[in-house]
Write a protein that binds this DNA or RNA. Structure first.
Lengths: 150, 150
DNA sequence: ATCAGTTGTTGGCACTGCCAACATCGACAG
DNA sequence: CTGTCGATGTTGGCAGTGCCAACAACTGAT
């Protein structure tokens, strides 16, 4: 089997390197999971479907704000979801410049399927840790991210 | 100030999401640090300089293997380093198809400067954690990554 | 001499993140 | 009523990292 690279010590010993390798592992497994589910969906799609399912119909601008996805990318991803029948877009009668995006029953079904895929990935990513270590890991990341003024 | 997005619960509660946000924070700070250092260098450049400084002159193929950087990206990044006088490339007399890459004194100096920048980023990324929590965080990521057969 | 593998280069793609420019619409001030 | 500003959605593009294929040149084994 292929031997993973052994980076120089000054790289390997940096927390930012460990974070980037952890992310690469996680992202790789997610990408593989999305691909295996066979609908050509990816992270952006999932995040948008999840937001629509949880918060209800929303404008594209609100979707972008709520998910942190750039509104030009929201437009592109929604076009793909719409072409697959997973969302519908309609013009807001109260605001002709605004689209209201709604998840479809097929979109909800797809979302539940992806939930399973993503749950499996959580397990794969965290499998080297005990339950207590997993909670600790989550607590530490939450603390790292909590300071939003930085 | 701008309010960060609040993703739907099914996203926010997944460890892979926390890992991706932690990485985004870390990568953003690194990018800002590299840019502030003003030499147009980035992660690939640093990794290559670090490998050359630690392991000595190496072929491009060996550099790619050692750092995990695709050999086509090694070629591109070395061209940029060479144009800035930070490395030199010469043909291996024993193997005409192989380049031997060597870091220059200017490259070593640049590497030390970048070490400072990257050390500052470690501090910024980890500042919400206590010393004990930092050690724990590193231990957990190391454990997550240790199983290379996955 | 031939073949397989290695090395380095070129060109390209995918994904995520990001930005500018533009047209259209709505709200508001004058 | 008109002009201006901000919001919305779209289009086109870029950056960085990661990855791949195809190719030419070289090496080593047969």
């Amino acid at each position: 089997m292929e031997h993973p690279p052994n980076p120089p010590a000054r790289v390997a010993n940096r927390p930012t390197w460990l974070i980037s390798r952890t992310f690469a592992r996680s992202a790789g497994l997610l990408a593989a999971g999305f691909e295996a589910s066979g609908r050509g969906l990816r992270s952006y799609h999932y995040r948008l479907l999840a937001a629509l399912e949880e918060f209800g119909p929303a404008s594209q601008a609100d979707l972008g704000r709520g998910t942190g996805i750039d509104r030009s990318d929201v437009t592109a991803a929604l076009s793909e979801l719409e072409s697959r029948g997973l969302v519908v877009r309609s013009t807001d009668p109260k605001h002709k410049r605004r689209n209201i995006v709604t998840i479809t029953p097929a979109g909800v079904a797809q979302l539940l399927e992806l939930d399973q895929v993503i749950d499996d990935v959580q397990e794969q990513v965290l499998s080297p840790l005990t339950e207590a270590q997993r909670r600790q890991f989550i607590t530490l990341m939450t603390k790292l991210l909590a300071d939003e003024t930085r």
